[in-house]
Design a protein around this nucleic acid. Structure first.
Length: 420
RNA sequence: GCUGAGGUAGCCAAGUCCGGACUACGGCGCCAGCCUUGAGAGCUGGUGGUGCUUAGCACCACGGGAGUUCGAAUCUCCCCCUCAGCGCCA
């Protein structure tokens, strides 16, 4: 959520940001109109309340005929105040509905652009492997090795689900532990959170209201299935005022994530876009002045996973048009999958600045006597499992259909060297 | 799931039965001033949010919401959460 004061004081900044992001700027005009009306109503109600408070004291101190007279007068004032309050409540509701739909302000370093082609490649790591045979896709390899079962996933849950078997399942578990251990080394504290989360948590990080259609919802209990551990983990501190010495907080969390991907999964074959997937997530709570640096560190912490696995990747800085609703600046890490011949987004590292903190009410105090301020939050996948598995299988395949296990991962798989 | 007790400011905690001077008692912590060589103690004032015509003024805030009333921390209803006991359970 943006600071309403900033919208009031520098609407042109907001207008530019909306334009650069490709948003309809009319929301700004609607907000301004409603906000002005709201402020005028607040003024009127304040005046009215003041009179009421004065009457209240007078009534309690008088009796008899005078008291009756005062009560009659106050009745009228009360009635009028109620009307004003009803109007204010309605105005406030409309205004806040506008406010919650404003996307975050892009960081000045974010390139202005509208589509994928405008994203800026920052760097590459690793050599793309040269094959002396035609590299197979992970779904072909997975089926041949009997480690990925698409048909049975569909049978037990539906289209867009899959099941891992044998070494596939073990590889998944190994990757989770491998990643978590790296992040523990890097100074993150491990969290295992709930998979079901309430509505206010989803508003807190900004998934709601925009992503409602993409989330699974348990109607009976009013709970959502976790779409990304960013939501529960960031909300661990919602409504809290942290002490200065608690910051920075680094959390890493493995958690299954669920996305409805309404009308989209059929576009992608394999396990690149599915309804349920595992992900290790990195979440940071930091001092506002540190968040720029913390984003760079977060990115390199996530990259470390791919480096140790030996999977080639590239880093892209997203342009204003591709930036997520709640993010101020985002780097995507894309691993190369030679079978699919595609760069796959395996991580998205974002600085949200105070956007989520403002929604979720996450503050800190520099000194005990000073006013509380909003923290800055960041998060990044560290990293998403299925696409990592795709890259791993497709990069380390042999012509005979076996898949080599990268040396760093072997200790997590009873030291086996390959799956065949 | 049932029964009971609770939720008041950064923290602890009075007030709630019986609505009105509650401008929310008091304490802890913290800040400023006074005092002191210094510190401590003591004393005085301050300590959340919002709006505005911003050395200030006003309003709001007692878990959340709705209602009753001229007036609600206080009465009524719904919901959330905490604790205890019982029940159920991997």
């Amino acid at each position: 959520m943006l600071d309403p004061k900033v919208i009031r004081d520098s609407p042109e900044t907001i207008r530019t940001a909306l334009r650069n992001r490709g948003y309809d700027q009319s929301m700004l005009d609607r907000f301004q109109e409603l906000d002005e009306k709201w402020r005028s109503l607040v003024e009127q109600i304040n005046r009215s309340n003041k009179t009421k408070n004065e009457y209240s004291v007078k009534i309690s101190r008088s009796d008899g005929e005078e008291k009756e007279k005062l009560i009659t007068e106050m009745k009228e004032i009360s009635l009028r105040t109620r009307e004003l309050e009803a109007e204010k409540a309605a105005t406030e509701k409309s205004r806040d509905e506008e406010l919650i739909n404003f996307p975050n302000l892009p960081d000045p370093t974010v390139p202005v652009g509208s589509c994928d082609a405008d994203n800026e490649e920052i760097r590459r790591w690793g050599e793309l492997r040269k094959f002396d045979f035609d590299p197979a896709t992970h779904w072909d390899i997975g089926e041949r090795l009997d480690i990925i079962d698409f048909e049975r996933g569909t049978k037990i849950a539906g289209s867009g689900f899959y099941v891992l078997k044998g070494y596939g399942a073990r590889l998944e578990r190994a990757l989770i532990n491998f990643m978590q251990d790296i992040h523990l080394e890097q100074g993150y504290e491990e969290i295992f959170s709930t998979v079901l989360i309430n509505e206010s948590s989803c508003y807190g990080t900004g998934q709601l209201p925009k992503m409602k259609e993409d989330m699974y919802f348990v109607e009976r209990d009013g709970l959502y299935l976790n779409p990304t551990a960013e939501v529960p983990v960031t909300n661990l501190h919602s409504g809290e005022i942290l002490r200065r010495e608690q910051l920075p907080i680094y959390y890493c969390a493995y958690l299954p994530s669920f996305r409805r991907e309404a009308g989209r999964h059929s576009e992608t074959k394999g396990i690149g876009r599915v309804h349920q997937f595992n992900k290790v997530e990195l979440v940071k709570f930091v001092l506002p002045e540190e968040s720029d640096n913390e984003l760079e560190k977060l990115l390199s912490d996530a990259e470390e996973v791919l480096k140790r696995l030996g999977i080639p990747y590239r880093i892209r800085l997203l342009c204003t048009g591709d930036l997520g609703f709640h993010s101020s600046k985002t780097y995507d890490i894309e691993a190369f999958a030679p079978g699919m011949d595609q760069w796959l987004e395996v991580s998205s590292c974002s600085n949200f600045k105070d956007f989520q903190a403002r929604r979720a009410g996450i503050k800190f105090r520099r000194e005990e006597h000073l006013k509380s301020e909003f923290v800055h939050t960041l998060n990044g996948s560290g990293i998403a499992l299925p696409r990592t598995m795709i890259a791993l299988i497709e990069n380390f395949q042999h012509e005979d259909g076996s898949v080599e296990i990268p040396a760093a991962l072997r200790p997590y798989l009873q030291n086996i060297a390959k799956i065949e």
